[in-house]
Design a protein around this nucleic acid. Structure first.
Lengths: 193, 193
DNA sequence: CCTTATCTTGAATGTACACTCAAGATAAGG
DNA sequence: CCTTATCTTGAGTGTACATTCAAGATAAGG
């Protein structure tokens, strides 16, 4: 017997970053062997093929983001200050210049849309779950009276999801921190009234 | 002497649609020869290489969209009804299911970001020009009293650009016409107050 | 109608890729 | 310490790609 030597989470996070930086198609297996420090055979033994690595990396990405999200939007804290902090952290990611400025899910769904229905379906499911997580928080905010109940939580979540997808894309066209902060501010205020 | 036989606009529009559908990397020269009905040699003679075809297709895309835009936002008509119509047309594109549901510029900048600075620069320039075109219309709307001057035209244009980039991305996760129309409606109302 | 410059054709070329596999290395169980 | 199941290694394989180029086709100018 012999146990696998590599750290699965490390490998998937490295792969994840490579996919975020170069996209699915242009992340070669050679690149993946470099960033994971694994040889092709090990990668294929562990994940089957390139698509398997990608799907596992998406899962890791989702797990990581979920943990961040639930840590920030803690149940016993008011929603709006967390939302504010969340928006700021996204603006910071957009400005950072590293791979984290893009969302793996939206970037990938834009790339593989109409090419691989399995990957598309996984990405759609994860993005819908993200929207639902936002809706839960808005539900909580409405119940607590932080936000007037003129719009449903689902409605608010949908609008914010759209805004955040747009913010990340817009940041590719204009890296001015002030402009991005202002947009985040606009989104914040669009939620509160 | 002999004149080129093919119709340049037709060829570029076909290439444009292929790039919108499959992305830059995954649109093979073979695909391009198919959709343009031109042989490799002719394409290389006319555009140099694949990147040349892509840049020319972007130029054609920009020209086409510009013409649409200026026809819709006619100088002697009020801005807000045109904006409404514009938003509806984008929602229709999002639902349509064909290649036009994506924006060639935003899809491409997301793909080639950090890979080809020349292409990125061209795309950024075109997207900034688009934002400026929106700002011009908001300027006109403010001057005509259609919109209160609580925010600058540039500010409004930036927010709408972000919203539209987000709307197209969001549509990849949720094709429900009602939801998309509501988002377009939200964007419209976010501009008017 | 012939010349010649230009365009068209599509097979050929070199490269980069995803993926395989057989040989070597290593740890758990006896 | 040996056995054996499993992991690691990395050169090798077939395929798909962007690009080239020489031969063939075609229209304008004389």
């Amino acid at each position: 017997m012999r146990i696998a030597e590599f750290d699965r989470e490390f490998v998937l996070r490295q792969a994840m970053l490579a996919f975020m930086q170069h996209g699915y198609a242009k992340t070669s297996m050679q690149k993946l062997t470099q960033v994971t420090a694994l040889h092709p055979g090990s990668l294929y033994a562990a994940f089957g093929n390139k698509k398997g690595i990608f799907l596992a990396a998406i899962e890791q990405y989702q797990a990581d983001r979920n943990q961040q999200f639930t840590a920030l939007f803690c149940q016993h804290k008011p929603v709006l200050p967390s939302l504010r902090q969340y928006l700021d952290s996204i603006v910071n990611e957009c400005i950072s210049g590293d791979a984290m400025k893009v969302c793996l899910l939206t970037k990938s769904i834009s790339e593989v849309e109409g090419q691989d229905s399995q990957i598309s379906h996984v990405l759609m499911t994860n993005l819908n779950a993200y929207e639902n997580a936002l809706a839960e928080q808005f539900e909580r905010a409405i119940k607590a009276g932080e936000i007037p109940n003129t719009r449903t939580a689902e409605h608010l979540a949908r609008f914010l999801a759209m805004g955040l997808y747009g913010l990340r894309t817009y940041a590719l066209t204009n890296r001015c921190e002030q402009d991005l902060s202002q947009l985040a501010d606009d989104l914040y205020h669009a939620m509160c009234n």
